[in-house]
Amino acid sequence: MENYLLILIGTVFVNNIVMSKILGLCPFMGVSRKLETAIGMGAATTFVLTLASGASYLVDTYLLGQDLAYLRTLSFIVVIAGIVGFTEMFIKKSSPVLFRVLGIYLPLITTNCAVLGIPLLNVQEQHNFLESLFYGLGGALGFSLVLVLFAAMRERLEAADVPKPFRGVSIAMITAGLMSLAFMGFAGLIR
């Protein structure tokens, strides 16, 4: 049990998907304009990522095995696309407001490099089924945590009189950079 907790803490804080591994930047920048959308996106990504890392582990061990290893990326993407399609319909049914506000970024979860990256990392670090589930969950929670905090910061930045050339996405990029500088504090936390 202690090992899973360590994986969870490790992926959420120490090597955070967005801040240390610099994955999943396009939804991170795109959806963080408003806090509500960020929370919605975080929840959607967590749902997709946890399912995806579990499903991709099953596909990898039982269907692909050693000889078909070259199919790994292809099959993972198909699985993720399926899950995202399912999530899209579910959100369109449960809350049309969130669906419209997320807009293009909901199907874009498929192309989110974090969502494909984590299953591949699972395989690379030979996690068993439960470990890869926790790794996926940790990565997604880390992504959502940072996304929500970043959205709150950008909402406040909206009203600051930032110098003209730095308005909009550029100050958001700088803020993201300073955030990852802060997250460096966790470096070396887990030996």
């Binding site: 596909v59 692909l64 198909v78």
Partner: peptide, 13 residues
């Protein structure tokens, strides 16, 4: 294998 994955996901969707 790819056909199998496609079929399963198609069913779910």
């Amino acid at each position: 294998v790819m056909a199998a994955i496609g079929l399963v996901l198609g069913g779910i969707l």
